[in-house]
Design a protein around this nucleic acid. Structure first.
Lengths: 122, 122
DNA sequence: CGGGATCCGAAAGGATACTG
DNA sequence: CAGTATCCTTTCGGATCCCG
């Protein structure tokens, strides 16, 4: 029933697993780095502030296991390259939608820390 | 630097917090239930299989703190009603994008164990 | 009905160090 | 460069009981 249409049923396991896959800590940012063109381990790591190699490695493995990225070792400049598979590329609309929403609704200085100062509304 | 929506920079804290907000455990499903029309605590709970009241309560509070839902106590039938704010409504494209992706790429028996053929090829 | 409080085990995540 | 290994803290999340 729910196929490409709108949200009209209460629960969908596929949706659920997809949401939690993408939403796993750091995963969104990693995917974003991949989309932005980064592909080497340390390049990805460098673009994401507090990401430790352990986390990156772990998330990358998960994504690989999910068929979202592929890992390839490059002999010459010696390194590893992570690329998005079609399934991974297909996530672009999702990432874009999140970006748009974030841009529209997340107030800049609310993002990093969270000094949620509402202006005194009694 | 471009801030509109395309992905071409490495990291964006707004995007990051948005992704992890939506991706928090159960949050996607809860949002989905809200979009599908549920609004009462136990109705939402009922649509999501293993969600405990504690988790629902916790997530709902987070969403409320983020300005994504509003909580209102209804005196008559006695209950509580959770509604999406404009900020919450604005998440619809995100949820839809995830739904679409999930439908296209998550193979049923990989998500849970609900038999469903993606496409009866040939 | 709609939660809050508490307890507690499980798992995720961070820091640091070390290696092929 | 690209990870691993280990430790150890924090958080998550489930169960249970209770309260307005």
């Amino acid at each position: 029933m729910n196929t490409t249409d709108t949200i009209d049923n209460g629960f969908c396991p596929n949706f659920h697993s997809a949401a939690e896959l993408i939403g796993r800590r750091w995963t969104g940012a990693i995917l974003r780095a991949l989309f932005s063109g980064e592909s080497r381990f340390n390049d990805i790591k460098a673009t994401i502030p507090d990401l430790t190699p352990r986390m990156l490695s772990e998330r990358l493995k998960e994504l690989e296991a999910e068929g979202i990225v592929t890992r390839r070792v490059i002999p010459e400049p010696l390194g590893t390259e992570y690329c998005l598979t079609p399934k991974g590329q297909a996530l672009r609309p999702v990432l874009d939608a999140i970006s748009t929403w974030a841009y529209d609704w997340i107030v800049p200085d609310e993002a990093a820390s969270e000094p949620r100062q509402v202006e005194a509304v009694s």
